[in-house]
């Protein structure tokens, strides 16, 4: 990971047409955008991400700011493209379902800590995606995209305070969900607490996820 000042310079270099600089920006930012998009559009995240990059490449010269600004700018573009897709499909945000990952967590070992050792990026993103949408977005933009509460609020059209609360609640929810399988009476607790936290319709999408 480069430090912030270097990346600021990389943004400027890319804006003046430096290909290697743009490649570095892509490699640095694409995973975050893709994972963020995963919670918005699920299996369509790759397609939406490529659309977003087309626009980023085209409009990069119109952007002004440092790398932090670039992160927020690209996240905004990605979100707009995701909303376009959702509008065109007339559906609500449909994140990757967490069921299957949670099932894997359970299957691997009955103890949660054993399962958590195996937690993959996809599983983690799916767990976050299972949160209520505003909490999921707040957590993803803050933790994965790396934005502060203010920038996140700008993207989501809310105040920084509301973002802080949403992110906090999201983490609290996440912790509670992780905690539950490890509690003593596993069988009953599990069947009750893991009863379908998200819609099952997205389950086929998981087959295609890498």
């Amino acid at each position: 990971m480069m430090d912030a000042e270097d990346l600021d310079a990389v943004v400027i270099a890319a804006q003046s047409g430096d290909e290697q600089a743009f490649r570095l920006l892509y490699r640095t930012q694409q995973p975050a955008l893709l994972r963020y998009l995963r919670i918005l559009v699920g299996e369509d995240a790759e397609d939406v991400a490529s659309e977003a990059w087309l626009q980023i490449a085209r409009d990069l010269r119109t952007f002004s700011g440092d790398f932090d600004g670039f992160r927020g700018w690209t996240a905004t573009i990605a979100r707009h493209r995701a909303m376009d897709l959702l509008r065109s499909q007339r559906r609500r945000p449909q994140p990757a379902a967490a069921d299957e990952f949670l099932a894997e967590l359970r299957a691997a070992d009955d103890t949660a800590d054993r399962a958590l050792e195996l937690v993959t990026t996809d599983a983690a993103v799916a767990l976050i995606a299972a949160l209520p949408p505003e909490q999921a977005e707040a957590v993803m933009l803050r933790v994965v995209v790396g934005l502060d509460a203010k920038s996140t609020g700008k993207i989501l059209g809310r105040r920084a305070g509301a973002i802080r609360t949403a992110a906090y609640r999201g983490l609290k929810n996440l912790a509670a969900r992780l905690a539950q399988p490890a509690q003593p009476p596993p069988e009953q607790r599990r069947s009750a607490s893991w009863s379908n936290p998200v819609t099952t319709s997205a389950a086929p999408a998981l087959k295609e996820m890498r």
Partner: peptide, 29 residues
């Protein structure tokens, strides 16, 4: 906290699959 690992996994470095669109992005650039 237990969430350390979950969040760290969510922040993990890019996998090759995630960077599959690099060629397209470069072409657009």
């Amino acid at each position: 906290h237990a969430l350390d690992r979950v969040l760290a996994a969510a922040q993990a470095p890019a996998t090759a699959a995630e960077l599959a669109g690099e060629a397209d992005a470069m072409a657009a650039f």
